[in-house]
Simulated scan of single mutants.
Amino acid sequence: MSDFGPLTRQPSLATRVSDELLEAIASGRFRAGERLPSEREMSERFGVSRTVIREAIRTLYAKGVLEVSEGRGTQIATVSASRVTEALEVYLRGAQSQDLLRPEHIAEVRETLETRLVELACARATDDDLDAISAAHERMAAARDADTAAVHDAEFHRLLARSTHNALMLTLIESINATMKAIRSTSLSTEGRLPIALAEHAAVLDAVRARDPEAARRAMRRHLDGSERYYDAATEAPA
């Protein structure tokens, strides 16, 4: 009996069909807006029942990969960046609520992403990009409370990500921003933090304008370290 190992559960037929369809979409064999073959045709192609095909389609529909419209049947959905951002935001918020994602975890990811994205911004940001970032910085400086400043703080970082002209970088930063509202407000409400944060932002922007990636990276790291330090001080302070 010692020669026998545990049995592994094989994926269901519906799962295998949905995986095959996902691969076909990812590889470009099916394109956004294109209709899927009929249930009968897919049933014959895959050698499975129509019930299996329906289950696979329901799975992909639930994931937002397929959409059903009257008169056009089932077709490949156009997956917008906003939909991806919303899905990732839901996941991150859920992870936070279950204490699976703590502020220090977000800080670790931000350091990895944002110290790299400022390097890319140095190489790719246009004059219009830089003007938009500067305007967000000015709005943050004019804010009269921490919550408003936090909104413009998030926009400053979002516009930096946009200036990389990397859609995935922007999507990731937008998703992280959505989870950081309370963190930013708490940090910026700490006495003395707002003017320091503004000076740190100015240093990042100056380095990007100068097309100096090493200086931009150092400035961003100082800013992120400062944000984390003030947040920790605010949350550890006695009531």
Rank of each mutant, 00 (worst) to 15 (best):
A216K: 00
E89D: 13
Q10F: 11
Y231Q: 08
A81F: 08
L88Y: 11
A32C: 10
E200W: 01
G73I: 10
L92R: 05
N166I: 14
I106V: 13
L92G: 08
A123S: 02
R211S: 03
E119M: 09
M140P: 00
D145N: 06
I183A: 12
A207V: 04
S185F: 09
A107V: 11
R45F: 15
T164P: 11
G73K: 05
R102A: 09
E114L: 01
E200I: 00
L120G: 04
A14C: 03
R158Y: 13
H157N: 11
L194Y: 00
L170K: 12
L92Q: 11
L60P: 04
A125M: 02
L159T: 07
D212K: 04
S49N: 09
D153Q: 05
G28K: 08
G73F: 07
A239G: 12
L100H: 13
A56C: 05
P195M: 02
E34I: 06
A233G: 12
D127Q: 03
L198P: 00
A146I: 02
T8R: 15
C122Y: 00
E44I: 09
M169K: 15
P238D: 06
A121F: 01
A178G: 10
A234Q: 14
L130M: 02
A95T: 11
L130D: 00
R158H: 07
R162D: 13
A149L: 02
R93A: 13
D128T: 13
E55T: 14
S2L: 12
D212F: 04
A14Y: 05
H201D: 00
F46C: 06
K63N: 09
G94R: 10
E138N: 01
L113R: 08
A107L: 09
A87L: 15
L120Q: 00
F46H: 12
A203T: 04
A62D: 09
A215M: 00
E114P: 01
L224K: 02
G33K: 04
A216D: 03
A178R: 10
R58D: 08
L160W: 08
R93Y: 13
L101W: 09
A182N: 15
A95N: 10
P213L: 01
S175H: 14
L101D: 03
V79R: 07
I53N: 05
M42E: 07
K181Q: 13
A210K: 02
M180V: 14
D145S: 11
T235W: 06
A154W: 06
H137I: 02
